[in-house]
Design a protein around this nucleic acid. Structure first.
Length: 369
RNA sequence: GUGGGUGUAGCGCAAUGGUUAGCGCAUUAGACUGUGGCUCUAAGGGUUGCGGGUUCGAAUCCCGUCACCCACC
């Protein structure tokens, strides 16, 4: 059975409209998944997320495994109940975190031994363990353990990481026995032949969707788009395509044009906490800047979110300058609203076969992001 | 009034005779892509209280003066 339906293919590009069915509801694609690593999209309540139009969020097996631990989540009745979010959840395996956060790690074909970034305790996780953890989380879409190479990276290491990712994907598939949707993760850094080999082998294993990993890890933009373009062209049309960890609005638009369906990124919330807002027809805006000291207009005059309906730039700047936590919340809320609104606009443009015009129009006035 | 102490960037402080007076915070402006609210990068900002003197050279030593602090009258 296929959980993904291709609803419409844009006439003038590879952009596509789709629908993904999960145990906790349907997701219209292209979609953006706000990131809730520690069972919370930082500073936002489930209601605020829902009101912003979020149809799925992302969480993280590595973080939740370390804290609060699986026993707590199991007793809570799964991640949905624990965090009181009843729409779909995709959980990342934690492959990325093992390679970016752990104090120490030793990777072998068997799995990965690492030291917790929280308390230094040593853990050993095999791909099978990571599937079990996500079974207990009871998320809707789950990801296999993978090895994410950063940029720049030698061809030898990229090949090693890619091959291990494939082996682990096969073992994950074997260990996966329920109705959660398991995606395959394509690695191979910036090397097209490695990406091709990885794609082919994962496609042969028949996953519910395919994720493009190891992107936006420091590589220049042109290389990034080359790889997205290349891999997207290899993937089956009838399965969802997920570009992991991406990204800026312009990255998302470029990737949608290349046929990507799903995105997640910390940018709206992290930038929100750090005082950068995304504004329609403008781009990135640093809320702290002195120029807004007496700007009593809304953050984004085209936005209908709670922040923009009720507060001025001058007030938001004041909140950031005084380190008041409401500022983090209000700008995070706006940014999430902005990203989800962007996705709605993208879907509508594809539906009307005018994605190219939409992209042109969007980029015309939109700078730096 | 007497004695002592202190005056250096918006604030708190370094620099005890030797290049162009530094540091932290603050300010200003950047960065952040499968999340630690953190962190990082850069910039602006000085008549060293004021006036005089000694010296090749003074934030630094001397004299005067002003302000503030402490103690004693």
């Amino acid at each position: 059975m296929n959980n993904f339906t291709l609803v419409h293919q844009d006439n003038h590009s590879r952009a596509r409209l789709g629908r993904l069915i999960t145990a906790h509801g349907e997701i219209n694609t292209p979609c953006f998944m706000p990131v809730g690593t520690q069972a919370t999209v930082k500073t936002l309540s489930a209601k605020e997320l829902e009101d912003s139009g979020a149809s799925i969020i992302l969480s993280n097996a590595y973080h939740l495994f370390l804290r609060p631990g699986m026993e707590v989540i199991k007793k809570a009745g799964g991640l949905h109940n624990f965090m009181s979010w009843q729409k779909p959840i995709l959980t990342d395996s934690g492959g990325y975190q093992v390679f970016s956060l752990a104090l120490f790690r030793k990777v072998s074909d068997e799995g990965v031994e690492f030291q917790s970034h929280l308390d230094g305790a040593k853990h050993f996780l095999r791909p099978e363990d990571v599937i079990d953890i996500q079974r207990d989380l009871a998320s809707d879409i789950i990801m296999p353990l993978d090895e994410c190479a950063h940029y720049p990276c030698s061809r030898d290491y990229a090949e090693l990481a890619m091959k291990r990712t494939i082996q682990w994907a096969a073992r994950s598939k074997k260990a996966h026995r329920n109705s959660q949707l398991l995606f395959g993760i394509i690695q191979g850094a910036t090397y097209e032949d490695l990406r091709r080999d990885c794609s082919r082998q994962l496609i042969d294993m028949d996953f519910s969707g395919y994720a493009l990993g190891g992107v936006s890890v420091g590589e220049p933009k042109n290389l990034r788009y080359n790889i997205i373009n290349f891999v997207s062209g290899l993937l089956p049309k009838k399965k969802p395509r997920y570009l992991m960890g991406v990204g800026m609005p312009t990255d998302i638009i470029e990737a949608v044009e290349l046929g990507v369906d799903m995105f997640d990124c910390v940018i709206p919330t992290r930038y929100g906490r750090n005082g950068t807002a995304f504004v329609s027809h403008e781009g990135k805006m640093t809320v702290r800047n002195a120029t807004y000291t007496e700007d009593f207009g809304p953050l984004d005059k085209f936005c209908s979110c709670y922040t923009c309906k009720n507060f001025s730039r001058a007030y938001l700047r004041h909140l950031f300058n005084t380190d008041e936590m409401l500022g983090l919340r209000l700008v995070s809320l706006h940014n999430v609203h902005f990203f989800l609104g962007l996705m709605r606009n993208i879907r509508e443009a594809i539906r009307q076969d005018r994605f190219a015009e939409f992209k042109k129009e969007f980029l015309k006035n939109y700078n730096n992001a």
